[in-house]
Amino acid sequence: AEDTGVRVELAEEDDGTKSPIALRLWVEDAKKLKGKYKDSGAIEFTFDLETEVSETVAQEMVDSGFFLDSDVKVISKSIRDRVALIKWRRQRIVSG
């Protein structure tokens, strides 16, 4: 996937069954963000793979002051890519 400068990883072991899963997001390359990033560190949150969309949580991060509005797309994309990977991996385990 395209390097957004933002990393999103699992913050817990994926047992392949739970729909809400803990993720951790942090900025690896602040130069890729449009807005000024104040060093907040790693942000851990729970995301529901079945019912939630990445745009919602990205907007909540902006609302909470972690990022500026101009970066909501990059945050959202970073989360979406990771979520797609988790879902793909689960699908593979189920079908294989």
């Binding site: 990393r7 942090w26 690896e28 390359d29 907040s40 560190g41 790693a42 942000i43 851990e44 949150f45 729970t46 949580v57 909540e60 991060m61 609302d63 909470s64 002051g65 972690f66």
Partner: peptide, 27 residues
């Protein structure tokens, strides 16, 4: 700094903690 908890009005909890050195971009 230590971990901080930020709760969004929609109810989601964000736990903020320092990024471990080893996870910063070095690859």
């Amino acid at each position: 700094y230590s971990a901080a908890l930020v709760v969004h009005s929609a109810g989601r909890r964000f736990i903020v903690s320092p990024v471990p050195e080893s996870r910063l971009k070095d690859q």
